[in-house]
Nucleic acid binder design. Structure first.
Lengths: 233, 233
DNA sequence: ACAGTAAACTAACGACGTTCACTGGGCTTA
DNA sequence: TAAGCCCAGTGAACGTCGTTAGTTTACTGT
């Protein structure tokens, strides 16, 4: 009677083998070299076999993506214990950047590829798999995690006007980190732009943004908690 | 004897027709729908005919790109007359964002696609066409144009430490604008992120960055020239 | 009138994602 | 034990893509 479970386990095992092969190709050869035929070849399967485990290539890549979003979420937990919300935002940004630079191919797929768009047919994907990745819960959603920290900053009045809209400020912080790393990923090796350390650039940028947004210390201990950017790292 | 010129003119004309068809497909149907076969069909040619005018698809797209870099450069000239370098940087950023949002597909190709990388063969493209796009001359190169304005800021001591490295600060400004617009282009229609106005977000971000970088007004007229971000737009 | 040039065509190649009829071994059931 | 089902995996094909080699065709300069 446990054969059901064994079959399911086996099925899941080959599914994992497929994903592993895809990830291997992905991280080693880059983006557009990941081909169903090469994945199949890597695990000594026929290309058609992949369709038993994934609806199509997009679904396969999405599954890879899901795993990476989990990793990113975990990486961003680094700053979870930091009391000061502004410093927490800073730590989250640093973790985000580190993740992106450590896994550029994954990052590229996660945040730098425009998905096929809703089409005119307006057929929403069957189960709504995108929803599974990010649905607003700070415990499971990297975006909501950042947003949560930003909301804390605003709630404590740490940001002066007009930086008081949680959504906008969250996007500003996200864009700061994303801007540097995505530029580095696409143009980091172009000859015409001297990219020194993207780490340093992104940290400086986030420092500048936060500096620009934080309200002047009125009188409280906020001024003490604040660390000078140039001495921090 | 003038037939040489006429032939050249005709040749150039069909080259332009190819580019126009490509651009049309590009802007109307988006990125990956641009196919050599569809371009050829649009101008009632055979796919192979395109290879008379372009080395390969990449070269064709690069030619499209060149035109767009020209447009971008022209758009960024808006802030050319602005005296105050900080405000000039702000204006350049705004123009950049406007361009990106007005031509998202072009922007995607110009700044959001990782080019095939040098390969291991290390065969540099024949004429060095990438060099033609951006080669450091502020009059022809959008990046150098921004860099020039940033350098003026630094030369006038408008930025406090540690924001004194021209290259790094230029990249920070660039990344600020690029971060917002690229996120909007790829994820602007995703359900899980409430993207209000990317214009507003990017302007606020650049404001915050500049606010964070500018030195406190010592005593001079700089404080007067500085306009409060929230009242500007 | 003739040879040369070059733009455009025909036809094919290999690689891609995807589909579909099929097979064959393990499982359930009689 | 035999019959029948399930389903992971196969084989072969389809249509599309970028690209190439060989050929035609129209115009040019002599």
């Amino acid at each position: 009677m446990g054969s059901h479970e064994r079959r399911a386990r086996e099925r899941n095992a080959t599914r994992e083998r497929i994903l592993a092969a895809a990830r291997d190709l992905f991280v080693r050869e880059g983006f557009e070299k990941v081909t169903l035929r090469r994945i199949a070849e890597a695990i000594e399967y026929t290309p058609a076999a992949l369709y038993v485990h994934f609806e199509d290539k997009h679904a396969l890549m999405s599954a890879l993506c899901d795993e990476d979003f989990g990793l990113l979420r975990e990486a961003m937990r680094t700053g979870d214990a930091i009391e000061d919300p502004v410093e927490r935002v800073r730590a989250i940004g640093a973790a985000y950047v580190d993740f992106a630079l450590a896994h550029p191919h994954h990052y590229q797929f996660m945040f730098m590829t425009a998905w096929p768009a809703p089409e005119e047919g307006a057929r929403i994907v069957a189960g709504g798999e995108a929803k599974a990745i990010m649905h607003g819960d700070p415990d499971e959603d990297a975006y909501a995690f950042l947003r949560h920290a930003v909301a804390a900053c605003i709630a404590q009045g740490r940001f002066k006007a007009p930086y008081t809209d949680v959504g906008v400020v969250t996007q500003m912080c996200w864009a700061s980190a994303h801007g540097v790393v995505s530029l580095f990923i696409t143009h980091g090796h172009d000859p015409w732009v001297e990219f020194r350390s993207p780490q340093r650039s992104s940290h400086l940028l986030l420092d500048a943004v936060l500096d620009g947004m934080v309200a002047a210390p009125r009188s409280g201990p906020a001024a003490i908690a604040r660390v000078a950017p140039e001495t921090r790292r």
